[in-house]
Design a protein around this nucleic acid. Sequence first.
DNA 1: CATGAATGAGGCTTCATTCAT
DNA 2: CATGAATGAAGCCTCATTCAT
Lengths: 221, 221, 221, 221
Amino acid sequence: MEKRLILDKATRRRQLVDAAIGVFAAKGYRVASITDIITAAAVARGTFYLHFQSKEEAFHAVLDRFHEAFTAMAAREKARRYGNPLALQTRLRESLIEWLGFLLSNRDLTKIVLRQAAAVDPDYDRQYQQIVRDMQDHSAKAIRFLQGIKILRADLDPRFLNSVFHGVTTQVVLQAIADGTDPDLEAVADQWIDLLRMGVVRPGLPTGNRAGRPRAARTKP
Amino acid sequence: MEKRLILDKATRRRQLVDAAIGVFAAKGYRVASITDIITAAAVARGTFYLHFQSKEEAFHAVLDRFHEAFTAMAAREKARRYGNPLALQTRLRESLIEWLGFLLSNRDLTKIVLRQAAAVDPDYDRQYQQIVRDMQDHSAKAIRFLQGIKILRADLDPRFLNSVFHGVTTQVVLQAIADGTDPDLEAVADQWIDLLRMGVVRPGLPTGNRAGRPRAARTKP
Amino acid sequence: MEKRLILDKATRRRQLVDAAIGVFAAKGYRVASITDIITAAAVARGTFYLHFQSKEEAFHAVLDRFHEAFTAMAAREKARRYGNPLALQTRLRESLIEWLGFLLSNRDLTKIVLRQAAAVDPDYDRQYQQIVRDMQDHSAKAIRFLQGIKILRADLDPRFLNSVFHGVTTQVVLQAIADGTDPDLEAVADQWIDLLRMGVVRPGLPTGNRAGRPRAARTKP
Amino acid sequence: MEKRLILDKATRRRQLVDAAIGVFAAKGYRVASITDIITAAAVARGTFYLHFQSKEEAFHAVLDRFHEAFTAMAAREKARRYGNPLALQTRLRESLIEWLGFLLSNRDLTKIVLRQAAAVDPDYDRQYQQIVRDMQDHSAKAIRFLQGIKILRADLDPRFLNSVFHGVTTQVVLQAIADGTDPDLEAVADQWIDLLRMGVVRPGLPTGNRAGRPRAARTKP
DNA sequence: CATGAATGAGGCTTCATTCAT
DNA sequence: CATGAATGAAGCCTCATTCAT
C-alpha cells in the first residue's frame, strides 16, 4: 500500500465515518477493530488517529452523524406541520412514514443506535443515552400534544402509549433490517393508524368480565 | 488460596451460570471477562474451563437457562389454556401478565436475550437467533389462533400484528428494567387489551380523508 | 517457547526485577521496552503484567530495590557508629568506604538512580525525587553533625559542603561505572580525607590577594 | 495555515535549534517529540526535515551549539590566562567563576549535556561522549598544569582530583538549575578555593590513627 | 476436581519520517 | 522553501486459554 492520496480534512473524515458506520453496524462497537475500519476506508493506521483521538471518539462521530440526520428530519417535520393544515390523521400518517423512512434509509446507523446499547461504556455513555432519549421524546411530545387536543383518549397512561409507539417502530424497523426487506411504508402506516383508531379486535364481540375502564398503569419502584 | 471446596459437577455449573448471568447482563458479552465471572463465582480460573470449553459456551449455557424457563412457561400457559375455559379476553389478559411477569422476574436473563443481539458472533449465532425466533413464534401462534377464530380482524397483516405484540412487550419490559421499576402488570395488561379492543383514538372523532380500509402491508425484498 | 516453569509469586517477581534492573541500566527507562525485559527474564509477555501493572510500576519496583538496600546500609552504618567508639577520622573513612562500596556493588541500580532523572515522568516522579533527596540527606546529616561537634569549620556553607560530598561521590562512582573499573576504595577514601583535612594546595605557598575568610555562598532566587 | 514565511536557511535552522534546546531540556531526548519542537518553533512538520535528516541530527545540532560555546569560552580563558599575569590563586578563582557562569547562563544546554547521558543511543553516542570528555579534559589540563608547577600537592591522584573538580562543578550547577536559583558565584568560588587550600577540617585537631600519607588511588579493572 | 501461574495472539495508540501540493 | 496529510513500524497492554501442581 503505497498510494498516497491526499484529501482535505473534512472529506477524509467523512470517508472514515462512513467506513466506521459500516463496520460498527456489522460487528458492533466492541468487536469492530481499528484494523476493520482502516481496511474498509483503505487508509493507513495513522490516518485514523489524524481524525479521531480514539476508537470511542470515532463511535461518537458516528452517533453525531445520526443525531444530525435525526434533528434535520425532526425540523423538516415540524416545518411541514405548521405550514400544512391537513387533517390530523393525514398528518400523523405522514409523520409515521417519514420516521420509518428515515430509519430505514439509514439502516446501518439505525442498527448501531438501536442495538449497541451496552456497547461502549457499559454503564454510562452520555451521548448514546442522549440520542435514545431524544428519540423517545420525539414520540412523547406528539402524544402529549394529541392528548392535549383530545385526539387521544385521556384515560391511557402516556408512558404506556410511548412504549407502544417506540416499541412498534423499533420492532418494525429492526425486523425489516434483519430480514433485509423493504416494507411498504404506506401500508404499514395505514395499518398502524387503523390500529390506533379502532383496535385490532373484530368489532361487535361480546366483552369478557371487566375492561374498558382501565386504571392508569402505576409503577412501584 | 486453599478453599478447595469440592462440589458435584451440576452444582458448580449452576453456580457458574448464575455468576455468568449477572456478569453478562451487567457488562454485555464482549466486555464481560472470564475474570469477572470467576470473581463473581468465587472460583479459580481453571475451574471455569472444567465446566465450559470457552467463554462462548458459557454464554450458550446462559441462553439455555433462558430457553428452559421460557419453554416451561409456555407449557404452563398451554396447559392452563385448555384446562380453564375462560372468556377469551380473560385468557389473553392472563397470558400477557404471565409473559410480562416471566420476563420481569428474570431481568438479567431478559436483558441478555433482548440486548445482546450482535454480541457473540456478529453474523451467526444459531442458538441466539433460535431463541428470538421462539419468542416471536409464541405471539405469532397466538395471533394466528385469534385470527382463526375471528377474534382478531382479518384485514390486518399478521406480521404487523406480531411486530406490535413483540415490540410493545419488549419496550415495556426493557423500560422497566432500565428504570429499575416494577410496573403494575395488571394495569399494563388492561391498558393493552383496551388498546387492542378500541384503539387509542377518542371515539366519535370525524375521520380524515381515507382510512379504515387498509391494504395489508406488503413487503418487497 | 513452550516451557512452562511455575514459580511462586515472590521468586518470579524478583527475577523480573533483576531483569528490569539490567535493562533499565543499559538502555534507560524510555528506550527499554517490555520486550527487552521479558526477553532478559525469558518469560512471556503476559507474565510481566502478572507482576506489574505497567512499565512504570516495574521501574518503581526497581527504585524500591535500591531504596531497601540503601536503607539497610544506612542502618548498618548507624549501628556501627554507636557501637564502635573509634576516632572520628576512622569513622568517616569507614563511612566513605561503605558508601562507595555500596554504590559500586550495585552498579546497575546506581546507574539507574544517578542517571535517569528526567526519565519517567519529565516533571515529577515522586518516588524518584524521594530517593535522590534521601541520598543527599545522608551526607547533609553527617555534615551537620560534624559541624556541630566542631570538626568541620563553621565558616563554610553547609550546602556547599553537601555539593562537595555528593558531587565527588557521584563523580567517582559514575566514572568507575563508565570505565568498568574497580577502584581501590581505601585509597580513594584516604585521598578524600586528606583533601578534607589539608586541602589540595601544596603547603607553604604564598597566598594571593584575599581568601581564607570566605563569606558563605549566598543564593538569590 | 498559510504563514509561508520564508527565511534563509541559517536563520531557520537557528530558530529550530533554539526550539529544540528548550524542548530537549524540558522533556529529555526520548520524550521530546518532533511535534513539540515544531510547535515551539511555530513551523510545519516538513520544515523540520528540511533542516535535519532526523531527530537525532537535531540533537547533535544542539550538542554542537554547546560545543561551540564551550570552545569559545575555553579560548577566551586561555587568552586571558596568558595576557593577564595575575597571582595563580586569582587566576584559578576567575576560571571557576567563568566556568560556572558559562554553565549557568546556558541552563538548558547544560541540563541537556549533563543529564541526557543514556538518552540517544544507549551505548554509543560518539559526539556526546566527546563533549563530556572535552569538559573533563578542561579541568584535567588545569590540574596537570598546577601539579607541574608544584602548586598542587603531587601525592594526590590526578584522576581523583579531576573527579573532585568535575563532580563539584556538576553538582553545584545542577543544584542551582534544579532549584531555579542563581547562586553567588564569587562566594562559591571563594569557598571552593578555600577548601582547596586548607581543607574543611577545623585546624589543630588531633589526627586519627593513620592518614596524610595516602597512596595514590589505584584501579584494578 | 480445584487452583492460579504462565502463555501469546491481538488490540489500541504513538510518533518519526515521507511526499504530494 | 514551506506545508501538513499520510504512512506504518513498533510500543504498551488485555485477556481467553492452557497446564503444572
